[in-house]
Design a protein around this nucleic acid. Structure first.
Lengths: 192, 192
DNA sequence: ATCGAGTGAGAACGACCGTTCTCACCGAGC
DNA sequence: GCTCGGTGAGAACGGTCGTTCTCACTCGAT
């Protein structure tokens, strides 16, 4: 056994993440993942019994990393309104990453949503988690209708993600932040 | 010649549109399009010399139909602000269509954007056209900075499209409309 | 009536993909 | 030292896909 199971699994997931995200799930063959991870095909299949299972693990990992990065940015601020705006600063740093190519869940949903119920389900869960986080931030900021504000902020965020991905510019994050400021001024009670 | 070239082309495009949009571009084989359109494979390939060419024609047609539907809704209103809000009413009627599955350009971009420069380019052009239309509407409504308002409205629209596609609900269109009203109140001068 | 260009139906081809199988080989336990 | 379960490398398999080819046939022009 050249390398232990845990590191092999990590290498495979790392390679799958990079390739799936960059080229899309369907355009990447198992052989490309094998080559990139340096793991034998046999091992790959005993770690993940099928490509579908690997896709699921990829999405699961993306969800976790995304949540962690978001929380990191939000928790750097203490003022409740600043914490909401930190979401859009997170988006901006995400968009400026060299390999940014939009939301993995939106992309996978577009590819496989109608064909793989599991992918559709995972995309829904990911977005529901984001909505939940935004609702809590809106609540903490004293919004009279936190879910409503959260729903508005979601639209700005998702719109910024896809617009930035297609245009190749990070500007949509700034626009979203601007619009969020305006919406918060309209929705939140005057600052105490 | 059983049917003339023009109707054959229309039938192929109709079938390709339905299948590509429903299942995604890569999941649909040329044979499925042949079966659905009732056109022979030979004829199909002399109408569209490759699958890429058919994809391009599909996206071109989507762009045209989408613009037409949007214009139809917008032109039903005369008041400049109502014309902006008509965009979101258009989105709502779109989202409630039985076969709604998000934006064909966002979906295709997620699938092939990194692999096919042509698809990426067409998605950019489509979105640029939408931005142009929104900018003109914002201008007509007397926005002091029409591009800025247009950029905000784009985010709401794109966000509503993807959120609605993934959640399967048409509600995001209503949320986007609500947020648009708030943004217009903040950005536009008081009504004369 | 005959020719020939173009047709429909589908077989065929070559490439690729997900998955499994082969087999020589290694290292731990007797 | 000698098994033997598990490994790596990659060949092999069955299926699909985009594209081309075959071939009997039709139909308009001569």
């Amino acid at each position: 056994m050249a390398i232990d199971t845990a590191t092999a699994q990590r290498q495979v997931l790392e390679a799958a993440d990079a390739l799936f995200y960059e080229r899309g799930v369907q355009s990447v063959g198992m052989d490309a993942i094998r080559t990139a991870s340096g793991v034998s095909l046999k091992r790959l299949y005993q770690l993940f019994p099928s490509k579908d299972a690997l896709i699921e693990a990829y999405l699961h990992q993306r969800d976790q990393q995304w949540k962690d990065m978001l929380a990191e940015h939000v928790d750097a601020a203490t003022d409740p309104r600043e914490r909401i705006l930190a979401v859009f600063e997170f988006l901006h740093t995400w968009f400026t990453q060299r390999d940014f190519r939009g939301c993995a869940f939106i992309n996978s949903f577009g590819e496989l949503g109608a064909v793989s119920p599991r992918v559709a389900e995972l995309a829904q869960q990911h977005k529901a988690g984001f909505r939940q986080a935004l609702t809590e931030l809106a609540e903490a900021a004293g919004a009279p209708d936190p879910q409503r504000l959260a729903d508005h902020l979601i639209l700005l965020s998702e719109g910024a993600i896809t617009t930035s991905a297609i245009s190749g510019s990070a500007e949509p994050a700034r626009h979203a932040r601007e619009a969020a400021v305006l919406l918060m001024q309209a929705s939140l009670p005057a600052k105490s």
